[in-house]
Amino acid sequence: MKTYYNPEDLKKFGKIGEFQKSMADKFFDYYGEVFQEGALTAREKSLIALAVAHAIQCPYCIDAYTVDTMEKGCDEEQMMEAVHVAAAIRGGASLVHSTQMMNKVKEISM
């Protein structure tokens, strides 16, 4: 069955330079540096990436950062808490806009 997402395509990510090499090279250099140990540990960055992967609902990123967080020594509880952070921000982003709705309601109501 053909689908838009194929798990095998994740392995081809590094080959996107085939159509535009210089930009891909710059992107992967940058990407590599972002995930180095820094003010945040590589482990913390991996958990952030896992949460973001869920927020942007990227199946490739979810697979990649599920494995990566486990290989950084995280357990299921920590990983799920990271996803809840994404969910809280996503849910909160909707709910905080309700203030606009409330403003408007009050504006046009007697």
């Binding site: 540990t41 486990m70 290989e71 950084k72 020594g73």
Partner: peptide
Amino acid sequence: VYNPAGAFLPASQEGLELE
């Protein structure tokens, strides 16, 4: 000794030791 509970590689020894 830490070894992964599944089909994945171990974490960095230094970081995991601290944890």
